[in-house]
Design a protein around this nucleic acid. Structure first.
Lengths: 169, 169
DNA sequence: TATTGTTATACTCTATAACTATA
DNA sequence: TATAGTTATAGAGTATAACAATA
């Protein structure tokens, strides 16, 4: 494994770096892709302080008005308590409202405000533009296949069992 | 966009959650996949306190003995200063050594210790096993295609330009 | 002056555990 | 007892900026 340890001591040229096992690992490539995507998203989606997660929350609440925090937590793969701080941020920016659910006074029904919907309308084309850049080297067919393959990776892991939630990347 | 706001107020059933735009977005699916992968990696790769990043660093140093910290930083997409703390951790565990480079006394040549190589040998089959689980629903052909497509996503974004480094996911 | 590594620092994201109020 | 949300807290991971040693 790796270069033998009796090799010459000349410093490694930058372009001589090798990656060992890593390029074989889909997990590794996925990680690189996600880092690149996250950076591109944050740079190119104009409105400051919108991350992919916050955008996802806006989309979900818009698509499911009245949804509960626990449902949101499950949908975006966060702990309930993490959702609280995400919503605190969005509510402070008047993008989201928590409305005490009349049928169950423990729960909050989540709704976008008018400003939240407006922001979502502004962001969506920017996100689609980012997405277009993402797949700039893929044919329509390849894009569809990538979606399918990624979906199957997730499904393959989730079937395994209920995992605990180590602090994610 | 979303459900009309004059709909009945019955609480959303859990299985009625919809995802709006999100399933169309490759960026979103990639994120879900990466979260699932990270969790599976941490649960299933036995040696405690080895994350995908730390494993990647071990592989890279093994494949490029004598490499410099700056080269490592570029290879794993971290800032120089972040590499310092990663290496501090690995050096404290006696897995990696920094050896003052004789030809350039500013730089450190990085090497795995015997223990580091041994750990890498222990981990590698576990990582491959994790990887196998990852692609359990993919044919060999599909696996190869997924690797290719992910590589092209990264390449497509990186050509754009030198991005600053917002704190990543 | 530029480069390499380091330090000091701060920020973001996230989870855990214990708590409140409802059910 | 169980569930929904909250709080307090802690930890991991990362970047920025200023610095020392070396080139």
């Amino acid at each position: 494994m790796g270069r033998s340890h009796s090799e010459p001591q000349a410093p490694l040229r930058a372009d001589a770096i090798t990656y060992g096992l890593l390029p074989e690992l889909i997990g590794y490539r996925l990680r690189l892709a996600q880092i690149a995507i996250f950076r591109d998203f944050c740079v190119k989606v104009g409105e400051a302080d919108i991350t992919p997660t916050l955008f996802g929350v806006l989309v979900l609440i818009d698509a499911n008005p009245g949804m509960k925090q626990t449902q949101l937590a499950e949908a975006i793969q966060l702990d309930r308590s993490s959702v609280v701080s995400v919503l605190d941020k969005l509510e402070a920016r008047k993008l989201v409202e928590r409305i005490r659910a009349p049928d169950n006074r423990r729960a909050n029904a989540l709704h976008l405000t008018a400003a939240g919907r407006e922001l979502l309308h502004t962001l969506t084309p920017q996100v689609l533009d980012h997405e277009r850049r993402l797949v700039s080297r893929l044919s329509a067919e390849e894009q569809a296949q990538l979606r399918t393959l990624l979906g199957r990776v997730v499904a393959g892991l989730q079937q395994n069992d209920e995992l605990p939630l180590p602090t994610a990347p």
